[in-house]
Amino acid sequence: MSHDGGMWLLAIGPAGAAGLYWGLYRYYRNTDKSHDFEHETAVEAKPITGSEKKVGEVKGTQETRIDGDNVAAYRKRVQRIQDNTS
């Protein structure tokens, strides 16, 4: 009577765990489908324009945010490159 028949059962545990880990990683990360900012977004440098005119002063404020900030509106700040090769 051979006891080697149960060895495949011991090998299934680590192989199954590795397969499950890989599957969950691919499902949640979507590395092949994610946005690649450095390659898909054009950021053009332009000369600085403006003046040295003082427009206002804030002293001793307790506000944690600046009025009119666009931190949450990232879709307005970053736009995809349009492919015009038709």
Score class of each variant (00 low, 15 high):
residue 68 G to W: 11
residue 12 I to S: 04
residue 65 R to Y: 07
residue 45 A to S: 15
residue 57 E to Y: 08
residue 54 K to N: 04
residue 11 A to F: 08
residue 80 R to Q: 01
residue 61 T to E: 00
residue 29 R to F: 15
residue 64 T to H: 04
residue 14 P to C: 05
residue 6 G to Q: 11
residue 22 W to E: 01
residue 36 D to S: 12
residue 82 Q to E: 12
residue 3 H to K: 15
residue 10 L to K: 11
residue 67 D to E: 05
residue 74 Y to E: 04
residue 16 G to F: 03
residue 73 A to R: 06
residue 74 Y to S: 05
residue 67 D to T: 05
residue 20 L to R: 00
residue 8 W to S: 08
residue 68 G to E: 13
residue 77 R to E: 06
residue 39 H to I: 01
residue 86 S to T: 01
residue 58 V to L: 04
residue 79 Q to M: 14
residue 27 Y to F: 13
residue 83 D to H: 04
residue 34 S to W: 13
residue 42 A to E: 15
residue 33 K to A: 08
residue 65 R to Q: 08
residue 70 N to A: 12
residue 9 L to P: 00
residue 70 N to G: 13
residue 24 L to A: 12
residue 85 T to E: 04
residue 46 K to D: 09
residue 28 Y to A: 02
residue 21 Y to H: 11
residue 53 K to Q: 06
residue 85 T to W: 01
residue 11 A to C: 04
residue 27 Y to K: 09
residue 84 N to Q: 05
residue 65 R to L: 07
residue 63 E to K: 09
residue 68 G to I: 03
residue 31 T to W: 12
residue 13 G to W: 13
residue 7 M to V: 10
residue 21 Y to K: 06
residue 23 G to C: 14
residue 14 P to M: 04
residue 33 K to F: 08
residue 9 L to K: 07
residue 8 W to P: 02
residue 40 E to K: 03
residue 41 T to C: 12
residue 11 A to V: 06
residue 85 T to F: 00
residue 86 S to K: 04
residue 33 K to T: 07
residue 42 A to C: 09
residue 42 A to Y: 14
residue 51 S to I: 00
residue 23 G to Y: 15
residue 30 N to F: 08
residue 72 A to H: 10
residue 51 S to Q: 04
residue 76 K to L: 03
residue 33 K to R: 11
residue 69 D to P: 01
residue 62 Q to E: 14
residue 68 G to F: 11
residue 72 A to I: 01
residue 16 G to R: 02
residue 84 N to P: 01
residue 73 A to L: 01
residue 17 A to L: 12
residue 74 Y to W: 07
residue 80 R to Y: 01
residue 86 S to Q: 05
residue 35 H to M: 10
residue 31 T to P: 10
residue 32 D to N: 11
residue 37 F to E: 05
residue 77 R to C: 02
residue 14 P to D: 07
residue 8 W to K: 08
residue 28 Y to W: 09
residue 65 R to E: 09
residue 44 E to P: 03
residue 3 H to R: 14
residue 75 R to T: 09
residue 49 T to G: 05
residue 23 G to I: 13
residue 19 G to I: 08
residue 26 R to H: 07
residue 36 D to N: 15
residue 73 A to T: 02
residue 15 A to I: 10
residue 61 T to S: 15
residue 68 G to R: 13
residue 49 T to S: 08
residue 10 L to S: 06
residue 40 E to Q: 12
residue 61 T to Y: 00
residue 25 Y to N: 12
residue 60 G to H: 03
residue 69 D to T: 04
residue 7 M to Y: 11
residue 35 H to D: 10
residue 58 V to H: 02
residue 40 E to S: 10
residue 47 P to L: 01
residue 4 D to A: 13
residue 41 T to P: 09
residue 45 A to Q: 15
residue 32 D to E: 10
residue 35 H to C: 06
residue 33 K to G: 05
residue 17 A to P: 03
residue 68 G to D: 14
residue 61 T to D: 02
residue 34 S to Q: 14
residue 79 Q to R: 15
residue 27 Y to V: 03
residue 18 A to M: 07
residue 52 E to Q: 14
residue 1 M to V: 09
residue 57 E to Q: 15
residue 3 H to W: 14
residue 44 E to F: 09
residue 77 R to V: 04
